[in-house]
Computed example of a mutant assay.
Amino acid sequence: MKVIIVDDDSLVISALETIVESAGHDVVATGKDGTEAIELFREHHPDVLMMDIRMKEMNGIEASKKIIEAHGAANILLVTTFKDEEYISEALSLGVKGYLLKDNYKGIVPAINAVASGNMVFDSEIVQSFNKQEIKSNIGFEELTNRELEILELVAEGMSNKEISETLFISEGTVRNYISTMLSKLHLSTRTQLVVMYYKHGK
């Protein structure tokens, strides 16, 4: 698995590199800011991009936005010391696949593996820090049909549209339509927000 690590602290990069490589993954490049992250992603097309948020030239949120716009399938894992709700909200709206705190060393490798497999990962402390009232205002699971709830559970398990279609014997287009309908009903904008809402209020 190819991994890129971007952080403005060389000691953090060294520590993360050691953890990632000890798990048998290849760190193909490292960078110190969002601008470098964009160039490195374009050059290497990694399986996972691990990136800090607060960096001088361009922060991780802005870099994530540009990378996802250019490479829709980008697997970005934000690894940071900040659990500020504003950052979390922005990351969710962009479609970032994971948000992990740096002190969660044991969670780094499992998070990389999960994100590379198409799953979404959020540090338990991150989930607990979401503005409960803000998300609660969007709760409307009673508006979902049984079929929509069934698909929502599979989305929350990290299944892709293709995997869901094969499991339920329906087309990928039908799965996409169901997900779009759920997002509309729940006043959400991304698949990631749907998963977070499910685990926080619906599971």
Rank of each mutant, 00 (worst) to 15 (best):
E157T: 04
T80P: 06
L101C: 02
L49F: 04
K65E: 14
P110H: 07
L49R: 08
S93E: 15
S93V: 02
E57G: 00
A63L: 08
P46Y: 07
L94A: 10
E57N: 11
E143W: 09
K102L: 12
I88T: 02
N119P: 00
L100S: 01
A116S: 14
L149C: 10
E69K: 13
A63G: 05
E153W: 01
Q128N: 13
N113K: 15
K65W: 03
N131K: 11
F122N: 02
P110G: 05
K97D: 03
F122D: 00
S137F: 08
E143P: 00
A91V: 01
I61P: 00
H45Q: 14
V127D: 01
F130Y: 14
N104I: 02
A91G: 07
Y105E: 12
G72I: 11
I139K: 11
A63K: 02
H71M: 07
L77N: 05
K65D: 03
I112L: 13
I53C: 01
Y105L: 13
K66A: 08
I61C: 01
E43T: 12
L152W: 12
A116E: 09
L77A: 08
I61R: 00
F141M: 08
V48W: 11
L94V: 06
K136G: 14
V115I: 09
D47L: 07
V96S: 05
Y87H: 08
E134L: 12
K132T: 00
I61E: 01
A74F: 07
Y99P: 00
Y105S: 10
E143C: 01
E148R: 04
